[in-house]
Amino acid sequence: MEIIRLMPRFLEGLQLTIGLWAIVLVLSIPLAFPVAFIRSSKNKLVAGATKFYIDIMRGTPLLLQMCFIFFGLPEIGIVFERFTTAVVAFVINYTAYFAEIFRSGLKSIDKGQWEAGQMLGISKPVLFFKVILPQTIRTVIPAVTNEVTTLVKDTSLVYILGLGDLLRQGKIYANSLSSLAPFVVVGVLYFIVITIISKGCEKIEKSFNY
């Protein structure tokens, strides 16, 4: 019964989890497109620097990156609040992952389509937005769906900053009630949220069917 009375506490945790999730997506997906382009740039210096950034982000744990931003950057005078730290760390990390997904998506579009467009005298922006981008989106949706649901679960890493996300709320009440029920509730909440998100992504994927 106390579990029912504790629902508002879990929902507070869920609010932080979902809030962080949404902010990170809204920022990192639009950022990832230019990064994907720069990464495929012919300018070796710029492309190399971008590759280095992506490799660092993918080659080190997100938790470590977050620690570095929160505990390391103050040493050189850059101080972020706890929640801001979480947003910054997740956005730069997820932008790298999305950029790689988009890059491979763009690469998978047959070069012949760019040439067909050129032969028809269609300008590059028109060709990109009307032809290339919609195909890229469809190609990358499964991979993006994966990242988007992983992000929901990854947000629990903010425990290192002392932020009260859904999982931490579960931990708090599992300990104070000496019961496993809070973990069950937390698991069910995660499951519901991720199911809803997956269904949404499926709908989007279907809308790109041709």
Binding site: L120, I122, K130, F208
Partner: peptide, 20 residues
Amino acid sequence: FDLFPNLNVMDNITLAPVSR
């Protein structure tokens, strides 16, 4: 043929003359 797979036949043909 390099048709644009995300556009139907009509849009494949009219994209160039209309966008230009």
